[in-house]
Design a protein around this nucleic acid. Sequence first.
DNA 1: GTTACATGTGTAATCGTTTACACATAATAT
DNA 2: ATATTATGTGTAAACGATTACACATGTAAC
Lengths: 324, 324
Amino acid sequence: MVTIRDVGKHAGVSVATVSRYLNDKGYVSEETKNVLKKSIQELGYKPNQMARSLSTKKTNIIGLLVPDITNPFFPELAKAVEETAFSNGYTVVLCNSSEQQEKEKHYIQSLQQNYAAGLIVTTNYTEAEYYRHIKLPIVALDRRLDPTIPTVTTNNVEGAKMAINYLLDQGCKHILCIRGPQGIGVAEDRMKGFLEVVNNAQDIQVETITSPFEFTEAEQKAFNILNAFPTIDGVFAASDASAIGAMKAAQSLGRKIPDDIQIVGFDGISLGALVTPELTTVAQDIYHLGKVATELLLKKIKEEPIDNHLIELPTELVIRRSTK
Amino acid sequence: MVTIRDVGKHAGVSVATVSRYLNDKGYVSEETKNVLKKSIQELGYKPNQMARSLSTKKTNIIGLLVPDITNPFFPELAKAVEETAFSNGYTVVLCNSSEQQEKEKHYIQSLQQNYAAGLIVTTNYTEAEYYRHIKLPIVALDRRLDPTIPTVTTNNVEGAKMAINYLLDQGCKHILCIRGPQGIGVAEDRMKGFLEVVNNAQDIQVETITSPFEFTEAEQKAFNILNAFPTIDGVFAASDASAIGAMKAAQSLGRKIPDDIQIVGFDGISLGALVTPELTTVAQDIYHLGKVATELLLKKIKEEPIDNHLIELPTELVIRRSTK
DNA sequence: GTTACATGTGTAATCGTTTACACATAATAT
DNA sequence: ATATTATGTGTAAACGATTACACATGTAAC
């Protein structure tokens, strides 16, 4: 392996100078720079990251903490994070908490231990308090952890309003709301938007159930309630996953979509375009979400000033076949 | 930060002894072991991985090279790899090649550079030759890279035979085969199985198209060919993604599934259960695939003997609603 | 002409491990 | 009784970077 010492020898300077050149720190004459450039090229020198990290206590590793990579929202996010990180010279460690708080903490522990550069968090199950005391640069993605932690999310309140307004415009009178879990920021926001519209509307009947952002449970619960209320003619789900669950439930009850019942989801996962009928949804630009979050984290890592601690990206109502 | 030196001082021994204790190498008396255990506990000592790696030229990082994490096959795999790695004290770096060979090579380069412990490869676009010269322990997953590289895959030939036999049993007479890309091992194998059965069957008409393991292109191509051949009554797709593409194409042409046309996919991604009608498929146990591959890699890393360089896991025909 | 500061470079300590080697002592073999 | 081997431990040199500090020299200020 070629070391910085070899480069120094080859170029006829000391290691300090080489290091200064490499890190663009301190003074190095133009002449020396040229010589070094050549030497490094000729020797094919690549700095040893381990040695670097040992000395600086910093790596180029970013942790991406997700609850379940299998949930279709996260691969899209992961892709954005990976690509953004990669093009900035960072590497992404996949931390799949498998919804276990202990595993999540273990990862955080280990990332700090190993001098990770920063952390992007998309999980919910750990108290915000815990995060406040982490020394690592952190960005919360699609989750609100703590006011002190920069957050990138979509405008969930507005998105929900758009969705429900649309359902009302389409003539829905009896609406099922599949809300997300209690206490989770985005779920609360979507619920808030939903309620704001519904509470000001006339002659609307509403049913509400709670489900995690996932298929099976939503399908089950939706089945029961759709069965109990044959007049339900619209569904607003706080996630596409739940919406698709509801869709299957409706179909297995013989309800025609969108004729008997119209469904709007929330998220904009690409799966929405693959189900039949294709899902109308409040789409977030998931890739953009991940990209912005990563860029924000990079800023924090480089200790650049952050002007905006809460970035809310706009949503878009994508109308497909699950509504009229 | 507590260092090995602190532990040594606290326990009244030298760093060498502590190191020997930590790594279970060389002689350490029972008595000393107990003292050290206590000291480490009391001081809350955690070894510094950077320093370790610098010295040993080894990390506990495993690279997972995927072409596109957004393709639903890979998150399921990634989860298995992550969980298996995690429970063995390893960390997974997500290397999303985005189908670019250059990025793939860059990752391999960087993983070697950074003393990664090993590498799991699920990509295709780089010549096997290239991989043969990598010093890192490698396992190929669902891909055949090189005879010298241990490979975990499913029994694709048998799986394809099962699928196509089933279609014939169901009475299909005019079959569309959506094969995977040329030159890719698993695609060839599935094709081989398909042909073996079809060539021995009577009175069967066959159309074949090629599509990557992905939705859109398959949908497009399937649309054209289904449109051209109204008598096609069965589809065998070499991936669930293509199958779902074909499903959408058939539906938009007004063909009823499974009455007018029956569809069988291949892979067993969980998405298959979410589309309507639910997809009949040759299921691989993707999680198991990932787990076995990771365990195999771990064996290679620890330089344990590997008895089987080609592990072929069985497939299972999961019959759902897209066939009669 | 002295002082101050900017520019350019080198020496050596440091980061926190691992490990070769040396050196004990005790147990066993011959 | 001596040689050999097993057991237990410590010293100090790696691993390959960064960086504080020292030391030049050149230039500008007064």
